[in-house]
Design a protein around this nucleic acid. Sequence first.
DNA 1: GATGAATGAGAATTCATTCAT
DNA 2: AATGAATGAATTCTCATTCAT
Lengths: 201, 201, 201, 201
Amino acid sequence: MAPLNDEQLHQIRDERREQIKTAAIQIFAKKGIINAKMSMIAETAGISNGLLYHYFKSKDELFLSLIQEAMAETEAALRSIYAFPGTPIEKIRALTAEILDESGSPYFMLIHQARTSDGVPEKVKQLLEKYSMKVFIDILLPVFQEGQRAGELASDDPAELIACYLSVLSGVMVVHSNGIDDYRIPKADMLLRLIEGAKRD
Amino acid sequence: MAPLNDEQLHQIRDERREQIKTAAIQIFAKKGIINAKMSMIAETAGISNGLLYHYFKSKDELFLSLIQEAMAETEAALRSIYAFPGTPIEKIRALTAEILDESGSPYFMLIHQARTSDGVPEKVKQLLEKYSMKVFIDILLPVFQEGQRAGELASDDPAELIACYLSVLSGVMVVHSNGIDDYRIPKADMLLRLIEGAKRD
Amino acid sequence: MAPLNDEQLHQIRDERREQIKTAAIQIFAKKGIINAKMSMIAETAGISNGLLYHYFKSKDELFLSLIQEAMAETEAALRSIYAFPGTPIEKIRALTAEILDESGSPYFMLIHQARTSDGVPEKVKQLLEKYSMKVFIDILLPVFQEGQRAGELASDDPAELIACYLSVLSGVMVVHSNGIDDYRIPKADMLLRLIEGAKRD
Amino acid sequence: MAPLNDEQLHQIRDERREQIKTAAIQIFAKKGIINAKMSMIAETAGISNGLLYHYFKSKDELFLSLIQEAMAETEAALRSIYAFPGTPIEKIRALTAEILDESGSPYFMLIHQARTSDGVPEKVKQLLEKYSMKVFIDILLPVFQEGQRAGELASDDPAELIACYLSVLSGVMVVHSNGIDDYRIPKADMLLRLIEGAKRD
DNA sequence: GATGAATGAGAATTCATTCAT
DNA sequence: AATGAATGAATTCTCATTCAT
C-alpha cells in the first residue's frame, strides 16, 4: 500500500544502473558507439527500451559515463604499480599481468572505441584529451626510469618506451577482446621482453 | 566517335572497380562495416551513388571482395619472408618492417574489422575460417623453427610464439590505424625483442 | 489516528483536483494540448505522475474538464456585463477591462487551443459546438443593440460587430499569452474604438 | 539513357523544395513545431519521408527556412505601405486590407508559432530577435507620425499605437487561421477605427 | 555507363499510461 | 491515497538500395 521508502528506491535505482552499465560495457566494447543499439543494451540488461532512458538521458550520456569509469579505473590500475613489491621490473610484470587479466579487457576496448570511432560525443573527446596517453606515461615514468638505472630495462627514451609498451598492451587487448581465439594474449613474461634490458638471462 | 570496343569497356570497368575498392578500403578500415556509408565510398571514389551499384551488387559484396583481397595480400606478404636474405631473425625483421610500414595498415584493420564486427555477412565469415590464423602460422612455422634451432628465437612453443607475435602486430596496427598519435607503432627492432632468444646482445 | 471520514476524504479529493487543474491550465495554455506533458503538470502540481491518474483517467479527460470550466467561466463573465452600472458602452468597457486583465488570459488561450489544435478529443469538439461563438453573441446582443440605438456604437450588423469584437479580444489575448513583450495588450479604451459610433469625442 | 542535365535537375529540385515548403507552411502554421509531424508534411507534399530529408536536413532547418521567408515577406509587406497612394490613413488602410487578405495568414501564424511555442530551435530564436516587433514599428513610424500631424490618427504614443495595431492584426489572423468560422476577420475599415483620430465622420 | 532523385525499413528517443509496493 | 519504476507505441532521422532518365 505505502510507496516504497527512500532506501528501497535507492537500491532499485543502483541495481538497475549497474545492470545497465554492465550490459552497455559489453555491447559498446564489442560494437562501437554507432553499431551498439540501445535496444540491444536494453535487452541484454533485461529491461524495456523506455526504462533505459529513465536511467540515462541518451546513448551519449550512457557512453560518457562508461568512459569516465573506464578512465578512472585505468588510471587507478596504473597507479597501483607502486603498491606492488619488488624491483621495477617485478612491479611492471605484476601490473602487466593484472592488465592482461581478461576481466579488464572491455575497459581497454571501450577506451579504444572512444579514441578511434566516429560519432563520439564532444564531451567524450574532451575527456579523452584530459586523460591522454601522456597522463599515463607520466604515472609510469618514475618506475621505468628507476628500472633503466638498474639496467633492468632497455635504454630507449623512457617516454617512448612506455608509449610503445602501452600501445602494445592496448593492441593485444583490443584485438583479443572479441572472444575470437585466433588472436592470442601473450603471457606477461613475453610482453616484458619488449622493454627488458639486453642482458636478461 | 565509334563506340568503344569490348576490350576498352572491360578496361574502364576494371579501372572503376579499382577506384572503388581503393576508396572502400580506406572507409571500411577507418569506420568499420556498419559505420561505413555507401555514400561516403561513392564520394571518395568520385562517382555517384548509383554507379556504385553497377559495379558491386551490394555493400556486403563489396566488403567481401575487399576482404578476399586483403587476405590474399596478407598471405602473400607472409610468404614473401622466404625471399628476404639473411638468417631467420633477419628475415623476420624484414617482414616486420614491411608490415609496420603504414601503407599496409588498412589491410590489417580490415581483417580485424571482419573478425570482430557484427553485421559481417555470412560469406565473409566463411572466408575468415578458411584463412584463420592457423594458415598464417603454418606459413611462418619453418622460419621460426629454424630460428629457434639457431638460438636466435625464444624457445617457447613455436606456434604459440607466432600467434602472439601476429597478435601484437595486428594489435598495434589496429590501435594506431586512426591517425591518433597517442598510440605508437614501435620500431621493428623493439617488437623483435618479443621473440628473440635470451642471449641477445 | 482515526481514519478520515468520508467527508474529509471527499474534501482532500476536491482540493487535489483543484491543485491539478490549476497546474494543468497553465501548462495547457502555454504549451498546447500535445506539447503539454503529463509529467510537467504533475510536477507543477507538486504530485507524482501516478497520482495524476488517480484523479483524471487520462490526459483527454483532464483537458475536457478544463475546457468545460473555461467555457462556463467565459459564459459567466459575459453574462456579468448586465451587472455593471452605466450606459451600454460603459458596461462594455467594464467587461473589456475585466477580460483584458491578464489573470483571465489562460482561459482564452485554452479555448483557442481547443478550437485550433488537432489531437483534440472528440468530446471536446462536441463541447465547442455547444458553446460556439453564437452562444456568446446571443448573450451580448441586447446590450450591443441598446448601444446602437443610443448612438454609442457603430451601426454595423450587431452580430457581426460582436463576433469581430470577440475575435479581436481573443486574438490579442492569444498572441500575448506567452509573456513575450513584442505583443501588446491594448488598453480597453483603444479597443472600444473598434465598436464605437462615429461621433465620439 | 543519359543522366538528366543540370537544368532539368535544377528544375526538379526547385519544384520539390517549393512543394515541400508549401506543405510545410500549412502544417506548421496549423499544428506548431512539435505537433507538426514530418510524415504529415511528406504526405501533404506527396513525397516519401526519406525524400524530405534529401531536401531539408532536419525539421529544424525546414522550419528555420520557412520563418526566414515569412519574416522577409512580412517586412516587405510593411515596407510596401509607402508605395500606396493617398494620405497616411489611406496608405494604412491599403496595407491593412492587404494583410487581412487570407492568403497571407499562414505566414502570420507561422511567426506566431515561432514566437510562442516551445521547442523552437535556437537559430530561429536569434532570427526572431533580429526581426523583433521594434523593426516593424520603425518601418511604420514615419507614416503614423505623419498621420498624427495631419490629425488623421489618434494621438497616443505612436510606437505604442503601432505595437497595439500590429498585435491586433496578428491576433485576428492567428485566431482565424484555422478555418473555424467562429472567429471573424474584421473588415479593414473596422480595424482602422482602432487608430483613427477622434473626429472621424 | 552514369546520375541523383526517390523509397522504406530500422534505430534513437519521448511520453502517456500501468503497476507493484 | 501515493509513489515512481516500468512499458510500448509513436516520431524523427539515416542509409542501403532502386529507378527513371
